[in-house]
């Protein structure tokens, strides 16, 4: 069983975690093209190579991100979500002022 290095709990069997899907940034929901919204919601990249994924440590309810090579299944690094999401996100009104 693969070992996953949780940024909070250290090295653990991967059975302690849940896979949370590919990491994607949400397009501006109020004014992006319908096609790009559909792409975001319904399509997976399913890339062969190094991808960024959400992972969740079940016992601590802790979300984090991992870079994984989908060809070799090697986990390259793991890091807290706050490395990417450092600032508060707000949504504009329907006219679409964009995310901050």
């Amino acid at each position: 069983m693969r070992i996953l290095n949780c940024p909070l709990n250290g090295e653990r069997n991967i059975a302690e975690f849940s896979y949370g899907g590919e990491f994607h940034r949400m397009p501006e929901p109020s004014n992006c093209e319908s096609a790009s919204w559909a792409e975001y919601v319904f399509f997976h990249d399913n890339e062969a190579g190094i991808v960024t994924e959400w992972w969740y440590h079940n016992a601590t309810s802790y979300w984090f991100l991992a870079e994984r090579n989908t060809i070799t299944d090697e986990i390259i690094r793991t890091f807290p979500a706050s490395d990417i999401f450092s600032d508060r996100v707000d949504f504009g009104d329907d006219t679409g002022s964009g995310t901050k």
Binding site: S61, A81, F85, V89
Partner: peptide, 20 residues
């Protein structure tokens, strides 16, 4: 639901605590 709430707020970073 709880998992999904935590995942969203890991991105939004609102001043809120979520406890199951």
């Amino acid at each position: 639901v709880y998992q999904s709430m935590l995942k969203w707020n890991a991105q939004w970073r609102l001043d809120v605590d979520i406890a199951n």
